[in-house]
Simulated assay, not measured.
Amino acid sequence: MLPEHSEHTLLTPGPTPLHPHAQHALTRPMLGHMDPDVFALNREIQADLRTMYGATPDTFTALLAGTGSLGMEAGFANLVEPGDTVVVCANGSFGARMAEMAERYGAHVRTVTAPLGEPIDPEQVAAHLDGARMVAVVHGETSTGVLNPVPAIARLARESGALLTVDAVTTAGMEPFHAEAWGVDYAYTGAQKCLSAPPGVAPVMISDRAFDRFHARRERTPLWYCDFDGLRDYWERQSYHHTVPVNLHFALHAALRAALDEGLTTRRDRVRHLSGAIQATLAPLGFTPFVRDPAARLPTVLALRLPDGLDDAGVRRALRERHISITGGLGPTAGLIWRLGLMGEAARPAPYRTLMTALEDLLGAPGLRARFDDALAAVPA
């Protein structure tokens, strides 16, 4: 049997709590995917996505009917042909996933790595660019809490003539993103991350350069479902391609509009303010930032090294029994770090007050919630 409904505090790196406007949008009656009202909605979504991504007014944007991983795969499926050289920046689990996908589509992958908890070095990227057709990088590596230097990598890619693919899953929608200024050719995210919409659609941005590369393919992409021309047929020519998840479009539209109404700079500042307060609160207990360089810390996923002796699995299990979800490390960082989500509706003081109250009891740390409120007041807004 399913458990009874209860209020849950979701502080993971995704999914995030639903924005109230998105939750309300899910209750609307169903419309057909070819309904004129849905096409009107889609045009508004496309315009808002251009704003979110910092793209030009004529840049193609759309929603893929799948999660962020489909956004990742669609880029390689449409823009990579067997034998192409692709430089993949892999300093965590999702960079490694990029490399695997590129290989599955026949690319010769040159991997640029960095130690866990450290950003990619642009000079290492420059050393691998000869003959590369694409550079792929995760902007915010969710598995380690690292922010990679996309502007510097983008400049190198553009100078070399390579396309640039950016995983913006934990950045776009929570801070300004500058696709046009940086020279990003393909970017994607997931609805359930920074936007606090339900999982199931992946917002993408495709540059004219990327479409030129796509149309120069020797053979059609093997992935019919997300063929770029098929997407454009539906989103711009309003012709049938496949059935889109209409209610998820309405929910994404509501959450995206709420994010833009708040302002991407305001959202970035909200995250940094809250992150600073959490770190100040937990530091006396021995929690320290996993990423040493403050400039390389991903604002939306706070990776904290655990104090010696803390029972990672036991504490997280006890939190789950209190209907509080936080996430530990992946792979080599399992048992070493916690990854606290600071995206969308999770990046609010109230759910973290709930966490601090629970940790007071579980860690024997009275006054933790009061220290958190003091830290919120002390950290510059």
Rank of each mutant, 00 (worst) to 15 (best):
T354A: 15
G173I: 04
H273T: 06
A254L: 09
A132E: 12
G145C: 05
A65G: 11
H139E: 15
D167T: 02
S207D: 12
T12C: 02
M343Q: 12
E236D: 13
L336I: 14
G173C: 03
G71R: 00
E236A: 09
S93T: 05
A283V: 11
A259G: 10
M101A: 09
F372V: 02
Q23C: 13
P29W: 02
Q279F: 08
A62R: 01
C194S: 11
L298Q: 02
L11K: 00
P176D: 14
E44I: 11
E175M: 15
H273W: 09
A378F: 15
R305Q: 15
P351L: 04
A375C: 06
R348W: 00
H24Q: 15
A136F: 12
N78H: 03
P122V: 06
L363T: 10
E123V: 02
E321F: 02
R155H: 15
Y234R: 04
E123F: 09
G190Y: 03
F211A: 06
L64R: 05
S325T: 02
P17F: 00
H215I: 00
L376M: 04
N148H: 10
A168I: 01
W338S: 03
A258H: 03
V87D: 10
A350S: 00
A99S: 07
R28N: 11
M205Q: 11
T67V: 09
L362G: 10
N78T: 14
P36C: 09
L223E: 04
M30S: 12
R218Y: 03
S196N: 03
S93C: 04
L116D: 05
R97E: 07
P222H: 05
L164W: 09
P203T: 01
V146C: 09
G66A: 05
A254E: 09
A277M: 07
T142I: 06
T61H: 14
Y240S: 14
V86M: 10
N148C: 05
L18R: 04
R133M: 14
W182Q: 06
A318V: 04
G106I: 03
A107L: 02
E175I: 05
F250N: 13
